[in-house]
Amino acid sequence: MSKSKLFEVRPFSKRGSSDGFRPSLNLWQKALRRIRHDRPTMVAFTILGMFAVIAFMAPFLSDVVFQVDPVTQDLRNNYQPLFSPGHVLGTDELGRDHLSRLLYGGQISLGIAILGAFLSLGIGIAVGVFAGYYGGVVDDLIMWLVTTLNSIPGLPLLIIITAILSPSPLTLVFIFAVLGWTGTTRLVRAETYSIKEREFVVSARAIGASNLRIMFVHIVPNVFSLLIISLSQAMGGLILAESALSFLGFGVRPPTATWGNMLNGALDYARRAPHLVFLPGLLITVTVFCLYLIGDGLRDAFDPKIAD
């Protein structure tokens, strides 16, 4: 295993760490060691992990531990303050339990972000490897599509499509994925181009490995460290995008709770019940903050050009 080169001019994907060799165990080990010494990133990981666990356990926590549900309304007991009897975090404008809605809303918000980011990553990898591996007309067509989608400003397109489709959480995941894969594709395609002529790929082909096997066993793992970095950034972006869409009126429709539509809906009642605004707002901010910190930490950790 040789060490990676220090110099390579690649205008668009200069953040490359792997330049065409099997990922050395060294790289991952080093990254892991660096992250362990990166306190903010570790804290972010811990908080996020807690959020994920709590959101995953939302039904249990809500129904069994606190014995509340996100649906039951009590219009005559709405806007209850924090620490009200029976409603630890008060009630919302329809008298529904705020804690329970935050729990279930977190499930949806985090779910959209995770699924959306992974799905667009998956599409991006698959299309990128295909384009890079086969080249020629396939590559031209795919790159035409990528450039086209990249040239259309994202937010306007997102607004138009969500306005048309009235999204449920699941359709929103698909919309995010369909609009979000092009960056990954560019990256993966460029990497594939440079990797596919390397010795280990050529020799794999020589011993008769199928194209699919070469693509997904030999090439994809090589670009993985690149993608892991963008993944957490993408998740943070999707959580913000979901809340922004709610603000514009095109987000996930009630009664399904998300942190985004809870925050936006509560802005009307900010004076009367500030906790209805601050809790979902805080949860969004902390989650995205952690995701961005992790992305940042991962990038530094995986970048061999930044010496310790």
Binding site: L94, R253, P254, P255
Partner: peptide, 25 residues
Amino acid sequence: GEQMGVFFQAEMNKVGFNAIFEAID
């Protein structure tokens, strides 16, 4: 409107409707 839809759905389902609420464009 969305709050009223949610409320109507809950109230109607209490007496045996299968009310399916949706806010649509």
